Simulated assay, not measured.
Amino acid sequence: MRYIIFDIDGTLTDTTEVDDHCFTQALEETFGFRGFETDYGHYENTTDSGIIHQLFMERDQRTYTEAERERFIQNFLVLLKDAYAQRNDCMKEIPKAGKILHALCTQEGISVGLATGGWRESALFKLSCAGITTAACAAASFAQDARARRDIIGNTILQMNKLHKIDMPLSEIIYVGDGKWDYQATQQLGIQFIGIDNKKLEDLADIVKIGDYDELQLHLV
């Protein structure tokens, strides 16, 4: 058996632009933050929980409370829903993502998981808008589960190991993502990485990249 774990934004769903815009607006409206870095790849942890934690630490020398987190998530979700209502093509699937996800979930010898730096509620909403069904996935982890992406991925691996009652060798685990932070997390964990070919990964020449999901199966043999 092998584990294939997917990121969501930019990997399964074409939602990075609308997500960043609504996330920034939610930070401003929920917490009154202004003048912060909105290129979120520059944060120590490029996850929703990691970014908010860092901003709170820099401004108030504390992390956010659970109540503040929940207030932010609800505001963020309202903004995403409004954006989708105004223009539903802002939340599309990456071409063939739903098809490959379904195929892998039904393929013998493969178990599929999700691990995203986004909140559970926003991630599931974007997947639903993109028409991607994830019910057959073995496990999923979100920004609520950890601040560091490596720990979010690690949480999914632990869930999958518990489900299958095995301790999967790291060499048999693949993470599919679209950002440098995804690659760095796999390096920290010691698992394999397959990148979605885009500008964010153009500086990484010695990694496996796919430009079309039909190519993914070629790297699973």
Rank of each mutant, 00 (worst) to 15 (best):
H21N: 09
Q74W: 11
N45A: 14
E121H: 09
D89A: 02
I194C: 00
R149I: 09
G179D: 14
C22W: 00
D39A: 13
R62T: 04
I153E: 10
T134C: 03
K96S: 04
G10L: 04
F33L: 12
T134V: 08
N161G: 08
G109K: 07
A123P: 05
C105L: 02
F31S: 13
T65R: 08
A138T: 15
A143V: 04
G118E: 11
E121N: 08
N198P: 04
H42S: 11
H164Y: 04
L104M: 07
E70I: 15
K162R: 11
Q192A: 05
R34A: 15
L80F: 01
I5N: 03
R2P: 12
L124K: 15
T15R: 02
R69V: 14
L55Q: 11
L12N: 09
H219W: 04
T65Q: 09
I191L: 02
I196K: 01
F31P: 07
V221E: 15
Q187D: 12
D39Q: 10
F125T: 08
F33D: 10
D167R: 12
A67H: 03
K180N: 13
D206S: 08
E202G: 07
I166H: 03
F31A: 09
D7I: 12
A85K: 11
I52G: 12
I5E: 02
Y64A: 06
E29C: 02
Q107G: 10
K165Q: 15
R59H: 00
K199D: 14
A26V: 11
E44F: 02
Y84I: 11
L218K: 14
I174T: 15
G131C: 00
Y175D: 01
Q184L: 04
L220Q: 06
L12R: 07
F6C: 00
E202Q: 15
C90R: 09
M57A: 12
H42A: 14
P169W: 06
I8H: 08
G35P: 13
I191R: 05
G131T: 00
N88S: 14
D167F: 07
Q54V: 02
Q74F: 09
I51M: 13
F56E: 06
A85D: 09
I52Q: 08
L204T: 14
F125E: 06
L124V: 11
A205D: 14
I73G: 01
C105M: 05
K96Y: 03
E215C: 02
M168G: 06
A83H: 04
H219N: 11
E58H: 06
S111W: 01
D214L: 05
I174P: 06
D145Q: 08
V18R: 02
C105P: 09
S141C: 12
S171Q: 12
G41C: 12
A85L: 07
Q61A: 05
Y183H: 11
E215S: 01
A138D: 10
L158K: 14
L79G: 10
H21S: 12
Q188L: 06
K81H: 07
E37A: 07
L127M: 07
D39S: 09
W181D: 13
Q159L: 15
E58W: 03
A185E: 08
S122Q: 09
T38E: 08
F72Q: 15
D48G: 06
K99C: 03
K200V: 13
S111F: 05
F193H: 02
T186N: 00
R34W: 05
I100A: 00
D82V: 14
T13N: 08
R149D: 07
L101S: 07
